[in-house]
């Protein structure tokens, strides 16, 4: 049945002692990479470099990276529109990720879907649709297929707090509960469903309590504490691999920017945004790593310099990549 872990003050101390320096620095580097790619994507959109829209994940990197970082190649991810970085965490080459933003011929979908609707078949990342929470049921079906084949692969899906109100969120949890499927439903509770605050979405305090109604495990963690997320996620993944069923993992976090790049988010109090920016998961983890003598200022700079170079190359690649030929609009309707 549903269990709850709420360790807002513990900062992952229990797990950290078991984690290797390589893993800790890997988590750190990936969070910084997701942040920098996302911020770059926002800038490029504002510069008019690509059309459509972009749904920033900035502020939510600990949940994103903590939940998906340790996945194996044969594991699947079912992201939402806000989880473009899932592809990066699943080790998609950055050049293709940026080509996706630009809708270029070198994007994985050759310009067929919008910038944030990115999936990567070879890496088992499902392309999300705009209809909220629909990807959860697709992921659940994948989990059923994996289990039937006797594989011990798992599926991690992502959605926001808003998605937990829609019926098919519950249909997914219910189905996964009945069949004890290897699913981890990560709920990035950033307190806002576009412009609607959590108190107008649900009477629940913890969204992991949604799991109780379906007889499956539910865990709420500090979504801005990478180690807290990582510990809960790896436990849920291990349970899923062992055939012990699905988990709802609520990461309490915050969306720094608007719902999309065309939303100035004036419905939020400035103080609330500032308070959450002080809980930024990246400096918080840097402090932890510095205290454990795993990271100094020079290393921090080195990480950022390396990622900057990687992003610059990726953007250059995306800009040089041609648009798909207009005739390609007619292709791939049918398999």
């Amino acid at each position: 049945m549903a269990t709850k872990v709420n360790r807002a003050t513990a900062v992952g101390e229990t797990s950290a002692s078991r984690l290797s320096p390589e893993l800790l620095l890997g988590l750190y580097r990936m969070m910084v990479k997701c942040r920098m790619c996302d911020e770059k994507a926002r800038i490029l959109f504002r510069q008019g470099k690509y059309a459509g829209n972009f749904y920033s994940n900035v502020g939510q990197e600990a949940g994103e990276v903590g939940a998906a970082y340790s996945l194996r190649d044969d594991d699947w991810v079912a992201p939402s529109h806000r989880d473009w970085t899932s592809n990066i965490i699943k080790r998609a080459p950055l050049k293709y990720c940026f080509a996706q933003l630009y809708g270029k011929a070198d994007s994985p979908d050759r310009g067929k879907s919008t910038p944030a609707h990115m999936g990567y078949p070879e890496l088992h990342v499902i392309t999300p649709a705009s209809t909220i929470a629909a990807q959860l049921m697709i992921g659940t079906g994948v989990a059923w297929g994996l289990r039937r084949q006797g594989k011990d692969s798992v599926v991690v899906s992502f959605c926001g707090d808003g998605a937990t109100s829609i019926g098919w969120f519950h249909e997914a949890l219910n189905f996964a509960g009945v069949h004890q499927l290897p699913m981890i439903y990560v709920v990035q509770n950033n307190l806002w469903a576009e412009s609607v605050p959590l108190r107008l979405q649900t009477a629940l305090k913890n969204l992991s309590d949604r799991a109780k109604g379906h007889g499956i495990a539910g865990v709420s963690v500090d979504g801005n504490d990478i180690l807290d997320v990582y510990e809960a996620a790896t436990a849920a993944i291990a349970r899923a691999r062992n055939g012990e069923g699905p988990t709802v993992l609520e990461c309490k976090t915050y969306r720094w920017y608007g719902h999309s790049e065309i939303d100035p988010a004036k419905y939020r109090m400035k103080e609330e945004v500032e308070e959450w920016k002080r809980k930024d998961p990246i400096p918080r983890f840097e402090k932890y790593l510095a205290e454990h003598k795993l990271l100094d200022d020079e290393q921090k700079k080195q990480v950022r310099d390396e990622i900057t170079r990687e992003i610059d190359e990726a953007v250059e690649f995306a800009e040089k990549s041609p648009y798909p030929a207009p005739e390609e609009a007619l292709e791939h309707v049918w398999a």
Partner: peptide, 21 residues
């Protein structure tokens, strides 16, 4: 046999099809 859950079962079927079923 599924719960009364049409979007759920169609969604699950799509996911199953991604697994070669």
């Amino acid at each position: 046999d599924t719960p009364i859950s049409e979007t759920g079962l169609i969604g699950a079927a799509i996911g199953m099809s991604y697994q070669g079923l």
